[in-house]
């Protein structure tokens, strides 16, 4: 009993940095954020309780809110499958044992170490309609490239293209590790039955890597919902609000207008959405995890 108590004291002592951090910068802010979302608050004066007015205004009067939601959904729904399928294809390609494959893996991975503001600035120049590398390359093949970040129809695809370039290689390594964990004799069984590469992929690779695939699908969605720096640096939300993403709108409300109550309501709606997605993940992943544990080990 004494030993147990001693351990408990040590446990809490070692964990204390996190416990303090969690209370101060996790739990307390979450609660206060909800309180702010029910208030009018400009940081200078004390928060004034106004009930659900922020939420009502957001949902029923603020068309920027719906623009931001639409832009963010578009970004998430187009980017997620592109990144997942693209990096899965890459992973399958570099899982082939050919000469030089290690070098190619490294090359594909390098863009993954570039992120945030550097990535954005590089791509502003790469996507320059007249002198950028992208349109110069297209022209080399006789194609007329779009205006990218200047054209409201192409601004979101432009940012998606950039993130596929910068995320593909990193995700590729994740999927490659999963593919390499598939036991070889399963492939041999399919080959004995006369199955080709599609049968091998469909009946062996895909089921085996599906837990990893699914997990990263969720990460990708949560990550996409948070897009901010790219739009802040590259377009400031334009042209014509076509890249006004959710978090950019939230940032503008909080730190340009200092409408902290309204911004907190925005944050809470996002929180609820992320919570729902995570919940779905847990419910579905329970099946997946059981499945892979049953067959794999």
């Amino acid at each position: 009993m004494r030993a147990l108590n001693k351990n408990t004291v040590w446990g809490y002592l070692f964990a204390s940095p996190w416990i303090v951090g969690f209370l101060l910068f996790g739990l307390y802010p979450i609660l206060v954020s909800f309180w702010y979302s029910l208030c009018q608050y400009d940081v200078l004066r004390i928060p004034q309780y106004i009930g659900l007015r922020n939420y009502r205004e957001l949902l029923f009067e603020d068309h920027y809110f719906y623009t931001a939601v639409w832009n963010t959904l578009f970004y998430t729904l187009v980017r997620t499958p592109l990144v997942i399928v693209g990096s899965l294809l890459l992973a399958m390609l570099v899982s082939k044992a050919v000469r030089g494959v290690r070098l190619f893996r490294t090359i594909y991975f390098i863009p993954s170490i570039i992120s945030g503001v550097i990535l954005s600035v590089l791509w502003m120049w790469l996507l320059n309609p007249e002198y950028g590398l992208v349109n110069s390359t297209l022209q080399f093949f006789g194609l007329q490239g779009p205006l990218w970040l200047i054209d409201p129809r192409w601004s979101k695809p432009a940012i998606i293209l950039m993130s596929v370039w910068s995320l593909g290689g990193g995700r590729m390594l994740v999927f490659l590790a999963a593919i390499q964990n598939v036991p070889k004799h399963f492939y041999e069984a399919v080959e004995m039955d006369g199955g080709g590469w599609w049968a091998r992929f469909r009946h062996v690779t895909l089921p085996f890597i599906s837990p990893v695939l699914f997990l990263w699908f969720i990460f990708e969605i949560i990550g996409s919902l948070q897009v901010f720096v790219e739009a802040y640096v590259m377009t400031k939300g334009g042209p014509l609000n076509s890249t006004l993403f959710y978090n950019l709108y939230l940032y503008n409300k909080a730190f340009d207008d200092f409408d902290m109550g309204y911004a907190s309501a925005l944050a809470w709606l996002l929180f609820i959405l992320a919570g729902i997605i995570t919940l779905i993940q847990f419910r579905v992943s329970r099946k997946w995890v059981y499945y892979s544990g049953g067959v794999g080990k």
């Binding site: 809470w268 996002l270 992320a274």
Partner: peptide, 16 residues
């Protein structure tokens, strides 16, 4: 807390 969007805590932390 891994799944917590940082936007939720950002404003109160700023005030602190």
């Amino acid at each position: 807390t891994m799944m917590l969007p940082m936007q939720v805590t950002m404003i109160p932390i700023f005030v602190i």
